[in-house]
Design a binder for these strands. Structure first.
Ligand SMILES: [Mn+2]
Ligand SMILES: [Mn+2]
Ligand SMILES: [Zn+2]
Ligand SMILES: [Zn+2]
Lengths: 149, 149
DNA sequence: TCTTCGTTGATAATAATTATTATTTAATTT
DNA sequence: AAATTAAATAATAATTATTATCAACGAAGA
């Protein structure tokens, strides 16, 4: 968490109409440094190490505000809880049904392929906001990483 | 609910290793006749009209069992509850963020496009089960239907 | 520095789902 | 067909995830 980073985070929060608080900065920073799509509880555990006095309610509230302001995304799983994604560029997700991991998967070609398809295939009475491909399956070796080639 | 249908449902349940009960038959039939991807509560309301004595717990348990046995699918929403889909062929979903509707969208070309792409793009250490495109946005006129052309 | 108003932490409330258990029902054995 | 066994259901309690409330606090502008 360098000084330059700190300034950037302040600027980002303020730029989205949010009052800059210590809690918000730390939560946003931690989300930025995470690519595992954690749930509120998991985020809480991480933040507690930095701000031991933080309340779980503040985590929930802050996540909600961030989503509302378009700073992060809330993502859906087949499990009973919400998970969060600080990555805001268009990308897809690979779901591992046994480890519950959500792995990012970005591919320009796929992006174009689908965008092109949807442009041809007109959906009437509908204002399309975004699309995402959900790929699901199981890691073969849960200890190792998934690798895309 | 014709007799032929009834026999077919019995056969389907038994064929998936399930004991055939009145509750299960009615729940399965109702799910088959629905394309709105209802939540447990909504299914409960429908079933109560047919079996007034049914318990909400039975709905939850039955849905869980059906998912487990591969008779239906559990689907994810950005809201805090699960929804269910009796349609088992590969298809995609359009999410309307204001009406909370989930609309089926099947297209062979899109299917092939993505399948082809994923065949080329190898995902290592991962056993792919399925993929689905989540399209989200808002209905322009919430009273009218979405139409795909 | 003072004032204002949004934010936080503590806690209570709600919604969705899962667990428990006695009772009922279906399937299997006699 | 009656008795036996095993599984499913209904009623209810418990848990989990999330949201709401509210007094105390802190950021930011006057
Ligand atoms: Mn159907
Ligand atoms: Mn929930
Ligand atoms: Zn992501
Ligand atoms: Zn569907």
């Amino acid at each position: 968490m360098t000084l330059r980073n700190l300034q950037y985070i302040k600027h980002t929060l303020a730029g989205h109409g949010l009052k800059v608080t210590h809690q918000r900065m730390v939560i946003y920073q931690v989300l930025q440094d995470t690519d595992t799509h954690p749930a509120a509880e998991g985020i809480y555990e991480k933040i507690k190490k930095i701000i031991p006095s933080i309340s779980l309610g503040t985590i929930y509230k802050t996540l909600e505000v961030f989503v509302e302001k378009g700073l992060i995304k809330r993502i859906n799983t087949s499990e009973g809880n919400m998970r969060y994604d600080a990555r805001m560029d268009n990308h897809n997700h690979i779901y591992c049904t046994n480890t519950k991991e959500i792995i990012d998967f970005k591919d320009e070609e796929l992006e174009m392929l689908i965008r092109d398809f949807l442009k041809r295939k007109k959906i009437g009475n509908f204002n399309l906001k975004e699309f995402r491909l959900h790929i699901s399956g199981e890691k073969i070796d849960p200890g190792k990483h998934i690798e895309i080639t």
